[in-house]
Structure formats: C-alpha cells, structure tokens
C-alpha cells in the first residue's frame, strides 16, 4: 500500500493513536472538572454537584453544554483574529506534549506490533520543555487582543511567571538528565523498569520537589494563579472571553495539569512500570493494559494532589512569587545539579 511512497499503514496507525490519545486527554480533563468540584466540596464539608445523573456524574456534560450555548461575544475594540487565535493556541500547546509520552509498552494488534507512544524522539525532554515555553503565547495573545488593561496586565504577569519558573524547571531536569544519560522518555521509563533500579524519585528527591513547584506555576494553579487573581485583576487574562473560547482557556488549564502529572509520573515515578512485577512474564497485550492502568493510577494521585493544594493553600503575592522563583528555586536547582554531578563523578571513580 504505497502512494506517494508513504507508508500508509504506519500513517493510519499513528493517526488513530493520536486521535485516541487526544480524545482520552479531553475526556480525562472533562472529568477532572467534576473531580475538582467534588474534592472542593469534600474539603469544605458540602455535598458538591449531585443533581445531574447518579452522584452528579453528568455534571461536566451539563457544564460543557452551558458553555457552548452561551452567546459568543467578540469585543468591538479587540483584535479579532488574535482574539480567536489566543484560546486556540492555549489548547494546542496543552495537547502537544502528549506526542512524546510513553503511555505503555507495546500492543500486538492484527499481527502488528504497535508502540504506545506517538513519537519516541531523540530529544524527548527538550521537546516537552519547548512546548512548555510555547504555553505563554496563548495567555499573552489572548490578553493583549482583548484590548483591556486588566487582561493585558494579567497576561504580562502570566508570561513573566511562566518564564521565571521555566528556568528552575529546566535546571531541575538537567540533574535528572545527568542520571539517565538520555533524553528519550521511552528509554527513561525502561531504565526505571530494569530490575535493581529504583524509580528516579529515589535518586532525585530535591529535583522532583523543584519540578513539582514549577509545574504548579506553569499550570497557573493555586497558589500561583496570579494571572487570574480575581480580587486584583477582575478575572485575569480571559476577562473579555465568553462561551466556548472561555471554555478553551479553562479546559486547557485542566489538560496542562493532566499532562504535567503524566510527565512527573514518567520522569520520576517509573511511568507505566508496576512495582514488584516482572512485566516480561505477561503476554504483551496484558502487560500493556496493566502498564496503562498503573500510569493512570499514578496520574490520578498527582491530580488529586493538585486539587488538594488548590483548596488548602492561599494565593501568593506577586513579589513573593518572584522571590520564590528567582532567589530560592533557581539556587536550589543549581545546588542540586552540582551535587548530582559530584556524586556521579565520585561513584564512577
């Protein structure tokens, strides 16, 4: 089956993988909104959404329908093209990271061995980092195109926050890279799976802590949700947005949270590895399913942690945020890097 000398079977395989992963991410993000409301309710001692369906399980669909049905408003003085581009970019940047994540090992379908990863590229971690650095554009363009001073201020805040915390995030990853010696995410998971090798969290506890804090900041989650601080900036960078464009911004935050949980699980908690289980004794398909379930359980724990923190810790002040990023996390990450390098050198002698 070759037309234009393209391997169409491979093309179809990858395309269906992309579609499945994107829809799965969207579905998980949909139910994260439900999870957030239920957790908030539990922490505040109230029942939470419980009207739509059993236990309020259809609530996310009701919310989505409400957002779609609302009137679409584009302000007269806004830059119309960029006003629409902003939420689209936010969503795209949020979904792009899925491409390099290893969701499982391999499945055998119709006699074809399919790797459960869209692209195991040579520079996987750097790709994740590149996509993270693109995440600011959605906020900046949306905030500027709204032609509203509050939106612009919030966008600038968000962008400077993202840029500041990217540095510490990158430095904490460098220490991890020294350990693994590879940038391929698939390879990093395989290393952690190997017998006698612990998960990377055991070797990089400080690096993980820094990564966790910066991930909160990159996702604009409380305690770092300054770009949407209602009491200072009305509603933040998406003040002028309505209907599904607002929905895209809110939704991309949940997808970002999901993806950063996946990345944390992959880099530091063994990805699809199940502890104390030798996957090679199972048939490939069962091993793959067990792996995916293990990864999702780890991810759900992280997502719960994200929400737990949101409803526990109050928001930082902006100068506190900058001090934490530049004066605490970056020196800490540098020290972590030096110590890791020194220990690796010492052990090799």
């Amino acid at each position: 089956m070759t037309l234009f000398a393209i391997d169409w079977l491979l093309f179809i395989e990858k395309l269906s993988l992309i579609i499945i992963i994107i829809f799965a991410s969207l579905g998980i993000a949909l139910y994260m909104t439900y999870g957030e409301r239920k957790i908030a309710a539990a922490l505040q001692d109230r029942p939470g959404p419980n009207r739509a369906g059993p236990f309020g399980l259809f609530q996310p669909f009701a919310d989505g329908l409400k957002l779609i049905m609302k009137e679409e408003i584009i302000p007269n003085h806004s830059n119309k093209a960029l006003f629409i581009l902003g939420p689209a970019l936010a969503m795209t940047a949020a979904l792009m990271t899925c491409a390099v994540v290893p969701w499982g090992d391999k499945v055998v379908l119709f006699g074809r061995t399919i790797a459960l990863q869209i692209a195991d590229i040579n520079v996987g971690i750097l790709y994740v980092f590149g996509v993270v650095s693109l995440g600011v554009y959605g906020i900046m363009i949306g905030g500027w195109a709204s032609n509203n001073k509050f939106s612009l201020l919030a966008a600038l805040r968000g962008a400077s926050q993202a840029i500041s915390y990217e540095l510490a995030m990158g430095l904490s990853l460098i220490a991890l890279l020294m350990l693994t010696g590879t940038l391929q995410l698939g390879e990093i998971v395989k290393q952690q799976q190997a017998p006698g090798h612990l998960w990377n969290i055991a070797y990089q506890p400080l690096g993980f802590l820094i990564f966790l804090v910066t991930a909160f900041a990159e996702c604009n989650r409380t305690p770092f949700d300054l770009p949407e601080a209602e009491n200072e900036l009305n509603m933040g960078f998406h003040q002028e947005y309505s209907s599904m464009k607002l929905g895209f911004y809110l939704f991309s935050e949940y997808i970002n949270m999901f993806i950063s949980s996946v990345i944390m699980a992959t880099l530091f908690f063994g990805g699809y590895d199940v502890p104390f289980l030798d996957e090679s004794t199972l048939t490939p398909n069962i091993a793959a399913i067990v792996g995916i379930v293990a990864l999702l359980i780890k991810v759900v724990c992280f997502i719960f942690f994200f929400m737990w923190v949101r409803w526990t810790i109050p928001r930082f002040r902006y100068d506190q945020l900058m001090n934490l990023g530049w004066k605490k996390l970056i020196p800490l990450a540098l020290a972590n890097m030096l110590i890791t390098g020194a220990v690796i050198l010492w052990l090799h002698k």
Partner: peptide, 26 residues
C-alpha cells in the same frame, strides 16, 4: 538535526520572541 530543531524553538520561539512581544505590547 533534532537537537538543533528543538533548541531553535526553545530559544527563539519560546524565549526571545516572548520578550519581543512583551516590548511591543507595552
């Protein structure tokens, strides 16, 4: 040249252009 490609995006698209946007927007 995968490394060059991704560094091009991180440095130019992700950092330098953000600063350009900052200045122009203000």
């Amino acid at each position: 040249a995968q490394f060059l490609a991704i560094v091009n995006i991180i440095v130019y698209a992700g950092a330098i252009m953000v600063l350009f946007l900052f200045v122009i927007m203000l």
